[in-house]
């Protein structure tokens, strides 16, 4: 009995992996996302706090791009917030560097439940080209429970929308 519980707790849950597929488009992904939020009822939206835990700023280029006219992600119900205290989702980029480790954990602790974590980009998933460095503490998974993973270096805007849809499906 105890071994079952122990195994259950130590295994955790598999994260949803998001990768490119043919036919991905901003409109399609965005509508799927909006539909998921609508299904939750009560006019819900998704509040995202971005945390750079050591990225090269490539991911940030694509994330800031989501608020520009071609994507205008707010129309699908996603809002980037200034504080982790307002966030449903933490969007974490980069490998976790030794010098950002504490700040990342504090940011996570400051966020209210359900604290969905998206590991954004190859570095966040497996440290990418920085793996094995003395200055890199590890993957995002090594520090926080990760719910959604987005592949890419950096992930395209379509993929980011897909990941938000996956995060929305985890909301209750």
């Amino acid at each position: 009995m105890f071994s079952i519980i122990k195994k259950n707790l130590s295994t955790g849950f598999p994260a949803i992996e998001v990768g490119p597929e043919p036919g991905d488009s901003v409109e399609l992904m965005g509508e799927a996302l909006a539909a998921k939020l609508k299904a939750l009822g009560g006019g819900r939206s998704l509040h995202v706090r971005e945390v750079d835990a050591g990225s090269c700023n490539g991911c940030e280029i694509e994330i800031t791009g989501l608020s520009t006219p071609h994507y205008d992600i707010e129309r699908f119900g996603v809002h980037f917030v200034a504080s982790p205290r307002h966030a449903d989702v933490l969007l974490v980029t980069g490998p976790v560097t030794r010098q950002m480790e504490a700040a990342l954990i504090k940011t996570y602790e400051a966020a209210p439940e359900p604290r969905i974590v998206i590991a954004c980009g190859d570095c966040a998933i497996n440290c990418g080209v920085y793996a094995g460095s003395y200055a890199v503490s590890g993957r995002v998974e090594d520090f926080l429970p990760v719910h959604v993973k987005i592949k890419g270096c950096p992930p395209n805007p379509e993929l980011l929308l897909k990941a938000f849809a996956a995060a929305a499906s985890l909301l209750k």
């Binding site: 050591g54 560097t97 010098q99 080209v129 920085y130 460095s133 200055a135 890199v136």
Partner: peptide
């Protein structure tokens, strides 16, 4: 600064 130091020169 230094928060995103990744040790690239050593790598």
């Amino acid at each position: 600064l230094g928060f995103v130091h990744k040790g690239i020169e050593k790598l």
